[in-house]
Simulated scan of single mutants.
Amino acid sequence: MPKTDATTPRERYRAQVRAEIKEHAWEQIATAGASALSLNAIAKRMGMSGPALYRYFASRDDLITELIREAYRSLAGTLRSASSTGTGPAPLAHALRGWALEDPQRYLLIYGTPVPGYHAPEDITAISAEIMTALLDACAELVPDSPATPFSTHLAGHRGWAGDHPAPSAALHRALVVWTRLHGLLSLELAGHFGGMDFDPSLLFEAELEGLLTPPA
């Protein structure tokens, strides 16, 4: 009879072990950062030999790549869902903050300090481009007739980062401003820099978002 299960017991076991390795990796990252990630330390925690663990992830960079890939896929899916709930960048901004607060280490892995010597493969770059495309789509709805600025004029000839997106230069400018300002706020909040300042970071986020999305008088 044909096999109906898409995976074999060995494949399921391998998936379980890889998932456990990733759980330990996140614990290490939360404690010491991604640059200190050690496969040998994970193997010791799991009662495995180093060579045995390397059958599941060939190198530290291989493991980091998998964690980054999953993080980007998760965020891209979150923003894709948010984009269907309203227009403009606001739904995306709220979804981004919720996603970041849900798992700060996941956010900091992809938007925090780069891991020394690590270079993301092309498929991860493509997923991150999906995130920027969602923001460009949202910003293009806001600035169809905005006047040119020195930076938007500059972007007319420096738009390779936006791929083949047809958004006008003013929308590219708005997207970069939204992207940098919101990530700046989130990075400060997640790093604890607002602690002891006696204000609600969520209200600051809302105020900044409102300022970003309110057309100038």
Score class of each variant (00 low, 15 high):
Leu67Gly: 10
Leu186Gly: 01
Gly50Thr: 08
Arg12Pro: 02
Arg159Trp: 14
Leu53Ser: 12
Glu27Arg: 15
Ala175Met: 06
Ala76Gly: 07
Gly160Trp: 10
Val178Asp: 04
Ala95Arg: 06
Asp137Tyr: 02
Cys139Pro: 00
Arg60Ile: 11
Ile131Phe: 02
Ser169Ile: 08
Pro216Trp: 11
Leu92Phe: 02
Phe199His: 13
Gly47Ser: 12
Ala43Pro: 03
Pro104Arg: 13
Ile124His: 04
Cys139Lys: 00
Tyr111Cys: 06
Thr180Pro: 00
Met48Ser: 02
Ile21Thr: 05
Met1Cys: 08
Ala52Ile: 12
Ala148Ile: 11
Ala90Glu: 13
Ile21Glu: 01
Arg159Ala: 15
Val17Ile: 11
Leu53Trp: 04
Leu176Val: 08
Ile68Ser: 05
Pro51Gly: 07
Ser187His: 13
Ala71Asn: 15
Pro168Ala: 13
Ala6Pro: 15
Ser146Pro: 04
Tyr107Thr: 02
Leu109Trp: 00
Gln28Asn: 12
Asp5His: 07
Glu20Gly: 02
Glu122Trp: 09
Tyr56Val: 01
Ala6Asp: 05
Leu186Pro: 00
Ser187Leu: 12
Leu188Gln: 04
Gln16Trp: 05
Ala134His: 11
Asp123Thr: 01
Cys139Tyr: 00
Glu122Ala: 06
Asn40Gln: 13
Phe151Ile: 12
Glu210Ala: 14
Ser202Met: 12
His94Cys: 03
Arg181Val: 14
Trp99Ala: 05
Gly50Ile: 01
Thr85Cys: 11
Leu212Asp: 00
Ala36Ser: 14
Phe57Ile: 12
Glu208Tyr: 01
Gly77Val: 09
Glu122Phe: 02
Ala30Asp: 06
Glu102Thr: 07
Pro216Glu: 08
Glu11Ile: 03
Val17Tyr: 05
Ala167Gly: 15
Ala134Phe: 12
Tyr111Asp: 03
Leu142His: 03
Leu136Ala: 10
Glu189Cys: 03
Pro168Phe: 02
Ala120Glu: 15
Lys3His: 13
Ser128Arg: 12
Asp145Gln: 09
Thr4Pro: 09
Gly163Phe: 11
Leu136Cys: 06
Val17His: 06
Arg14Ser: 08
Ala36Met: 12
Arg12Cys: 03
Gly196Ala: 04
Gly98Ile: 01
Glu11Gln: 15
Glu189Ile: 03
Arg55Gln: 13
Leu63Thr: 02
Arg97Met: 05
Lys22Cys: 13
Pro91Phe: 03
Met132Gln: 11
Leu79Ile: 05
Ile21Ala: 03
Val143Cys: 09
Gly47Leu: 10
Thr65Met: 04
Ala170Glu: 14
Arg106Asp: 03
Ile64Asn: 00
Asp123Val: 02
Asn40Ser: 15
Ala41Ile: 09
Leu172Ala: 04
Tyr72Val: 02
Pro215Ala: 15
Thr85Val: 08
Met132His: 12
Ala138Ser: 13
His154Thr: 10
Ala100Lys: 00
Ser38Gln: 07
Ala138Tyr: 01
Pro104Gln: 15
Thr31Ile: 14
Asp164Gly: 08
Ile110Ala: 14
